[in-house]
Amino acid sequence: MRTSNRNSTLLRSQGSPRSTPAILFGGNLPGDQPVTILRFANRVPLLYQQGACVITKAIEGMDWRRYGLEQRGGEGVPFGPAIILVHVASTKIPFTSEAKEAIANIPEMQEEIQLALKACGRKLKTHLNKRETKGKTKAKFEIVREILPLIAEKSAKIVGKDVPSLTGTITKIMNVVWIDDSITFEKDRYKVKVKVYNYTPKSQSFNLHALVPEGALDEKATVPRPSEIKEGGKVSWELKRIPSTGDVEVSFDLTGLDAESYDENELYASGINPVSIIGADPLPGDWDLERIRVEEVEAPAEEEAEEEEVDYDEQGEVLNDEQ
């Protein structure tokens, strides 16, 4: 199965041995249309009688709103930039007719498909949540990187004083470690840059990990030197004492991969409270840490209780009396 857009995210459920769903989300898929349903039975695509098929019934009978798709009234085919693909494998498939165009609506079958779809949906939701958090942080990132320095510069110019240090303000607005990664492809190699900004009020030390395709890492082009490289493409760096509002860059090259085959970095962090870091996930349990010692870090201090304050620019009331 492949789709024309490479940005789609394929989320596969381990689900039941009998039904395997997958949801492809995003890319250039239209967001205001019902999702496309692709049905398969024992590897054969089912092209006709979509409405009579248990796969369609299973999809229609679920509340997709909780998984981040739009759905009127919580039933029916959901809307959104997604393709839902379901494969049913079995020694006996209960087709509705000899033409083998649709699978009969057997309650156990529907339940089974829905269980697998829900597992898939949860992954979709996690992915969307992460994207949203990253989006919000990105907006703040722009404030502190681009707008705030200009405000400081202008105000200093007007009052005729030196440009003030932004450290305190920046860490109050962000209060996270922000990881901004990019991938470029040139001359048969992927160049990966991971920029780590410490926007917390304290200096930070932690471990950064990347999971790359096995054997693709060009060790010579890796800066700084990894603290550990393990089987299975597991690379780790020890990042020591990044000062408050300071940043470090980690870069590495991947070779021997096809163009368009690597489009998302898998980044993890350990030795830091997961809520203080945006852009890297907590290290999964199966990544056993041999040499790296993980220090438990105390949770960050509770955010200062914010005064109840109305946002002047977000009242949303139109003041014009004109038509």
């Binding site: 404030i143 200009l150 202008k154 105000s155 304050e309 109305v310 946002d311 002047y312 620019d313 977000e314």
Partner: peptide, 25 residues
Amino acid sequence: KAMGARTAKKTKGAQMLLRTMFILE
């Protein structure tokens, strides 16, 4: 007496503060 705050915490507020500085100048 109700007051609102224009703060640099949000993109819109930060932009308005920046514009304020430009206008002052």
